[in-house]
């Protein structure tokens, strides 16, 4: 049986990994972007980004002061449904103090900040199920700069693929330098209004060097990646060749009368961490494989 203590420990470790070190696919893409840029200003932005990543890793400190709002994805294995809410909440409170994380969660109207990143329905936990014999927890501490550029459109079916492409381009142009480019575009196509946005965010959990299994969607990912990078918005919106590091799309079947499309943008500091908790209490860090704790 997996104890609350192990879950809490895993939560703290996941958050620490996420905010202090980027997954390898993101690091590789940022280094490539640095090589690609030629002009002084975009090159300097990427140099600052790479230097900062190094500082975060060596100092074991949050790379960005916006350590996000906390959305978890918990996947229960076979016969492994247990109560995780309190352990994750307590882990988040502890992580806020010791890492430290910035206390970001506030009441939406009074703007009161409890100071520990928790409040009504926050952290938010998505539950999923699998036939594995472990529990998987993923966290994506995502900043508000990129989140605030999210967009949803309920297209008509006749607008089709062209409508989707047009909407994606317009959303990126409108966002400009605000979401801390080079960004990663998460897109959700289909489902319903709420499902498409959920898919857009979930798309950001996938490494950017993995294309969608569906060949038509994979093709759209490639096409949008290459088209968006001709826009010239560049790192931090100061001009340059690298506007996006990747485009990840997920889709779902939708109502015959609808075509929902959602975009959730992720900043270059694309922090995400995934761990598996085995029945014997072993915490296996998938996204940050150097960290294994018994």
């Amino acid at each position: 049986m997996i104890s609350d203590d192990v879950l809490k420990k895993a939560t703290v470790e996941l958050l620490k990994n996420a905010v202090t070190a980027l997954p390898e696919d993101i690091n590789t893409a940022l280094k490539k972007a640095y090589e690609t840029e030629e002009d002084a200003i975009p090159k300097m932005q990427l140099k600052n980004i790479l230097d900062n990543i190094e500082l975060a890793q060596t100092g074991s400190l949050p790379m960005c002061q916006d350590t996000g709002i906390h959305i978890f994805y918990v996947t229960f294995g076979k016969d492994m449904v247990i109560s995780v809410e309190d352990a994750i909440r307590n882990g988040l409170k502890e992580a806020t103090k010791i890492i430290p994380l910035r206390p970001n969660a506030v009441h939406p109207l009074s703007r009161h900040n409890p100071g520990d990143n928790t409040g009504l329905k926050m952290p938010y936990i998505n539950y999923r199920f699998s036939d594995k014999d472990y529990i998987e927890i993923a966290v994506m501490p995502k900043g508000a700069g990129s989140e605030n550029m999210s967009a949803l459109a309920m297209l008509t079916p006749s607008q089709g693929l062209s409508g989707i492409k047009e909407f994606a381009l317009n959303t990126i142009v409108k966002a400009g330098g605000k979401p801390c480019p080079p960004t990663i575009i998460g897109m959700g196509i289909g489902g319903s209004a709420d499902i498409s946005m959920k898919l857009a965010k979930e798309a950001l959990l996938r490494p950017i060097n993995q294309r969608n299994d569906d060949s038509q969607i994979a093709e759209l990912e490639n096409e949008l990646y290459s088209a968006i990078n001709t826009l010239g918005i560049g790192p931090m919106g100061l001009g340059g060749k690298t506007t996006v590091l990747g485009v990840n799309i997920e889709y779902a079947y939708c109502h015959t009368a609808s075509l929902p499309i959602a975009i959730n943008i992720q900043c270059w500091a694309a922090r995400r961490a995934v761990a598996r908790i085995h029945p014997d209490g072993l915490i296996e860090h998938i996204s940050h494989p150097k960290e294994v704790s018994p």
Binding site: C64, D66, R102, R111, N113, G145, C267
Partner: peptide, 28 residues
């Protein structure tokens, strides 16, 4: 313009915290 997300690089240029006001509106 300072590079977004590069919060530790920025912090290197700050030598001390001299004071804080209006902490009632939250740390950020």
């Amino acid at each position: 313009a300072i590079t977004g997300g590069a919060a530790l690089l920025a912090a290197k240029g700050i030598t001390s915290v001299k004071d804080v006001h209006w902490l009632d509106i939250g740390m950020p």
